[in-house]
Amino acid sequence: MTDFAIAPPRSQSRAVRIGLRWLLYVILGLFALYYLLPLFVMITTSLKSLEEIRTGDLMALPREVTFDAWKTAWSGACTGIQCDGVKPYFWNSVLIAVPAVLISTLIGAMNGYVVAHWHFRGANIFFALMLFGCFIPFQVVLLPMARVLGLMGIAGTIPGLIFVHVIYGIGFTTLFFRNYYVTIPSELSKAAKVDGAGFLRIFWSIFLPLSLPIIVVSIIWQFTQIWNDFLFGVSFSQAGTQPITVALNNIVNSTTGVKEYNVDMAAAIIAALPTLLVYIVAGKYFIRGLTAGSVKG
C-alpha cells in the first residue's frame, strides 16, 4: 500500500533518503563506540602487566597478554587486612542474590495474582501502597531497617540482607505481575473455579505456567538491582558477609603503595559479569517468552 504513496520515486529524494540513512548509521556507530570505550579500556588494562600500564598508552592493546591480574583479583587482592581476592565476596553475593530474587519474584507473582484476580475490599489501596513502596529512596529505610534487623536477630548476616532485598523488591515484582495478570481474562480463573480448583491450585496450575515472560522480566530486574546494590550491602553486612560490590570498593580504595589498575579492572569486570550473563541468557528467553505468549487465544 505504501508503494503507491512513494511511487514513482524521484531520484533526488531517493539519494537524500539514502544519505540520511547513512548519517543515522554513522551517528549510531559513534555512540556505540563511545559507550564501548570504557569496557575496552577495562578489558585491555586488566590484561596488561603493571609495568606496561605505567609505560604504555591507555588506549593501546596489550603487548603481552597476561591473566595474572585476574588471578590476583579473584583470589589474592587485599580488601583491608585480608588478601583473599573477591572470591568469598562473589559467593556472598550469589548467596544473597539468588534466594532474594527467587523469593521476591514468587511473592510478587502471588501478590499480582491476588490483586488482579481476587477482588477484595481495599485491593486498590493495597496496590497503591505497594506502588508507593517502589518510590521510597534506599536511604530513608536505612535506620528503621537496621533496627528491625537487630530486633529479628539477623543483623549483619546473609539472611538479613536477603530479607532487606526481598522487602525492597516486592513493590516492583508485584507491579510487574499485577500488570501482566490483568491482561489474562478472568474467565480463565472462573473456568478453573467451576472445575473445582481453589486459590493455590489456580495460581500454580493456570497462572504460573503462563508467566514465563514476566518471570524473566522480574528476574532480570531484581537480579540487577540486588547484585549491583552497594548501600544495603555496606550498611547491613559485617566482615565475612559483605557482597562483591563492597569488596570491590575496598580493593580499589584500600591498596597501599602502587595502585594496581589491572587488578582493579579485573575485579570490576568479575563483579559485573553475572548481571551481563543474566541479560544474555535470560534476554533470549525473554524474547521467546513474549512471542510465545502473543499467540491469540
Binding site: 472462573k190 473456568a191 467451576v194 487465544g297
Partner: peptide, 15 residues
C-alpha cells in the same frame, strides 16, 4: 455440580 462453557472458551492455554 455444574459445568460451564464460556464465551472465550477459557481453555487453559498451557495445557
Amino acid at each position: 455440580d455444574i459445568a460451564m462453557v464460556f464465551q472465550s472458551y477459557a481453555l487453559y492455554p498451557t495445557m
